[in-house]
Amino acid sequence: MKTKSRSAKILVAVILAVLSFVYLLPLYVMVITALKSAQEVSAGQYLLPTGQPQWSNFTEVLFGSQRFRSEMATRLGNSIIISFSVTALCAFFGGLSGYYLSRIRSRFSTVLFILVGIALYLPYQVVIIPLSILMAKTGLGQSHAGLIFSYMILNMPLASVLLGTFFLAIPRELEEAAEVDGASRIQIFFQVVMPISLPAYASVAIIIFTQVWNEFFLALSLASRKTQTVQVVMAEAKGTTLVLYNLQMAAALIAVSVPLIFFLFLGRYFIRGILAGALKG
């Protein structure tokens, strides 16, 4: 299927140029604007790397200032606590139920699978009102635990199905050998299935982490001032500091840094997770 004719080379060059421009421009603009002063931005002189880079923009965004009150450092902490907790808990418990779904064939497990399948596509809008009542009634809304708990409700089905899909691909012989040796299902899961599925866990963890880190609707509706995530504070900053695009871009870079680092260094797991979620589930 491969050719190296001249017209093919031209086509490749054109597509390369167009895509590079369209996808690198926003990234470039984000970085370059974040390093400009407010004067340079309002004069329209921010597209070239001239002048003194304003690193202080980042400290201003992180720790707050007169013109940027929505300091991000604590919110970054909130996002980290919430996202890592949800990811770890969902991977652990989702692994258990994913194993059940992938191994047990009964009428009950079919019903369960259908319920989980529908749950995957449940819009957050249809659960948010009761959730906010629960958060207010139990007082959980004021703590990280409340948001962690809410995100678990919404991400457990996904974690179970994704991990279950990976478990389906594991040859049964391994488990049967352990079974003959008298191991219980629980032992088999923790001693045989889990250790050889670590790459699967990595993929699922990255997907869940990115989803929770980037989630906005639930975070906006449930978070109190003490538990606000970076996404919420960014939306708030955009509403109140409409003019200061350099600070907004600095905030955007900070908000995107964590998942982007995961993407750059663990891209393979990332892609595998996306494909598992899309193609097999």
């Binding site: 980037n214 906005f216 993407f263 990332f270």
Partner: peptide
């Protein structure tokens, strides 16, 4: 790479 970004970040940019 935009898959790793939130709509909030993309929207801001």
């Amino acid at each position: 790479y935009p898959v790793a970004m939130s709509f909030i970040v993309t929207g801001t940019v």
